[in-house]
Design a protein around this nucleic acid. Structure first.
Lengths: 196, 196
DNA sequence: TAACCCATGTAAAAGGTTACATGATTTC
DNA sequence: GAAATCATGTAACCTTTTACATGGGTTA
């Protein structure tokens, strides 16, 4: 049920579904992705449940906007979640599953290619995180201690994202190297077998 | 749709839903969790789709088992997936969302407690990974180059899991330290204000 | 005038969680 | 005799994905 809470958290200031979608895409998607249709449906439900209220407001450009703001009940459930235990342990990494099962192909060059391809994708992801950092904190390295509370917490989270991507990239490299060694051993065994 | 492929991958050797559930719990759950009911339903569907076939076999202890084995069509879709691009980018980290939104509480001691609690949970997770390693590869440090292909790939994946948990633990510590510094700055500002 | 951004939604299907139901055998 | 393990499944519900539908305003 985390999407509910994330939406409530983002609605510290009133916003429309459209606004929230763009926040997800620009600042959040490295740790939580949400589809547009899911956002609209969930906002509607949260209003029905009394955690949000909405007003329809004309827009400068385009159709009228439905602007949501949090009720006291909404703030209450959000804070309960924020004071609750860390939600850890349900992550799913499809790429890890792919690698773990790849032994069946018995094709080390495929494994190596896979790891290098993964490294490339992670490099793209790191660029995305750099972009978020620039958008949020500017180009220069900032001292997190000087940031206001909300941005300080955003900084901590972004910092985690960057560290995790870097760790995975290093792992890709190290493993690709291991695979290369294994390939060498394999080819030596082959030539020894044919030579004997 | 990764659960489908993971099940197909695990069914290199025939197995029952019960067997597969225990494999998930003992070897896989650090990168992919699956409920018992979901496994049974999915196996049934994969059989309907022609990727698995099953036979009912008596059991030593307990009711008869339904043992699944992969068809050629199943092997084909599995290998297609294994040869496909790494599936990366859809991960969801609820604990990151919690932290990112925690600024609203404006309570640094809560943030620090949260980070330390998270570190503890991650330490438990690392123990779980150590357990998997012991179960799979024994107590001594083994040289991955000597393992057969399937176990080599399992080793690479486990290695990733361990590195990621450790990175997150270090991040928890570093951030908790940062928060402590911030608390110090804050309390100094408070005492300066009351003293002026 | 085409493409893009603004802005809202609905609906069907797939994937996943939680709870329930049943019953034999083995171990303490 | 109670608890754990073996073993299968169903049903209701919730969450997420994918696709569809609409239409005004701005920019190249």
């Amino acid at each position: 049920m985390s999407l509910d809470h994330i939406l409530l958290g983002l609605l510290k200031e009133p916003a429309s579904g459209y606004d929230l979608k763009s926040v997800f895409d620009h600042r959040i998607r490295y740790y939580w992705a949400a589809d547009q249709s899911q956002i609209y449906v969930t906002l509607k439900r949260l209003e029905r449940q009394g955690f949000l209220e909405s007003t329809r407001e004309p827009s400068d450009k385009g159709p009228p906007r439905r602007v949501y703001h949090r009720t006291e009940a909404g703030t209450e459930v959000l804070h309960e979640w924020l004071r609750g235990p860390p939600k850890v342990g349900d992550e799913r990494f499809a790429y890890a599953a792919q690698l773990a099962l790849m032994g069946e192909l018995d094709d080390l060059s495929r494994t190596r290619d896979y790891l290098l391809e993964l490294e490339n994708l992670l490099a793209q992801r790191l660029e995305m995180l750099d972009g978020i950092q620039r958008d949020t904190f500017g180009n220069a390295d900032i001292d997190p201690l000087t940031l206001p509370p909300a941005r300080f917490h955003a900084w901590l989270t972004l910092h985690l994202g960057r560290r995790m991507v870097r760790t995975r990239m290093h792992w890709c490299r190290d493993c690709a190297e291991l695979v290369r060694e294994r390939e060498k051993v394999e080819s030596e065994q082959l030539s020894a077998a044919s030579g004997s």
